[in-house]
């Protein structure tokens, strides 16, 4: 089923300069009882956004009106821990379309790519600079060009190339879906099963 395409994104950023932000912080387990993919943005970073009495925590960046945009910039090892795809749904539902960090946990990265949320891996130095820059200047924009695999601080800041698997890049650019792709390989899969059975494998 076709998905939203990702080609070019230019936006202000929300900086989150902490390391090892795990998926329990992104969306706590007690909000995982839903049976659809929608509405998780409401509880994104729930326990950082609200205090115990349910009041907004003024110190947290998502509650600061000066900051906003479609790009989340986070410290290294973003998305570790639980495999919950709800974390990606929450970030996407909130309105982000890309997450920039120097390092992503494997499952989170796969989940992001499967949902049209672009994980952009940048060198640590670039990340530190970017975090400083956008923390000090909330109006500063960043441009992510997927076709050319370049992320740049506009209008005249640093820019750097980022890696992405060519197959996944194609999927994002064209809004293609892995399941459609796999379904088109059914005959091949059935043939594989026959061969496996002939070899008497478990």
């Amino acid at each position: 089923m076709p998905k939203e395409k990702f080609t070019l994104l230019e936006s202000t950023c929300v900086p989150l300069p902490f390391e090892n932000i795990d998926t329990d912080q992104i969306i706590p387990a007690r909000f995982l009882s839903a049976t659809t993919r929608e509405g998780f943005g409401e509880n994104l970073f729930r326990d950082w956004r609200y205090d115990k009495s349910g009041q907004k925590n003024k110190d947290f960046i998502l509650n600061n009106d000066r900051y906003g945009g479609k790009i989340l910039v986070a410290g290294k090892n973003f998305g570790s821990g639980s495999s919950r795809e709800h974390a990606v749904w929450a970030i996407y539902d909130y309105g982000f379309r890309a997450v920039v960090s120097s390092f992503f946990a494997d499952i989170f990265r796969n989940n992001s790519l499967n949902n049209g949320l672009l994980p952009v891996i940048v060198p640590e130095k670039f990340l530190e600079n970017l975090l400083d820059l956008v923390s000090n200047d909330p109006d500063r924009k960043v441009r992510i060009d997927l076709e050319n695999q370049v992320i740049s601080i506009v209008p005249d800041g640093d820019s750097v190339q980022f890696e992405i698997n060519p197959y996944k890049k194609e999927c994002l650019l064209k809004g293609l879906d892995d399941i459609d792709y796999l379904l088109s390989k059914k005959d091949l899969i059935t043939a594989f099963e026959k061969e496996k059975k002939a070899k008497n494998e478990n």
Binding site: S83, I107, N110, D178
Partner: peptide, 13 residues
């Protein structure tokens, strides 16, 4: 471990 999109892949294919 896998995400839910991959759970759907495994169920479908």
């Amino acid at each position: 471990g896998i995400g839910t999109s991959e759970v759907e892949m495994a169920l479908a294919t």
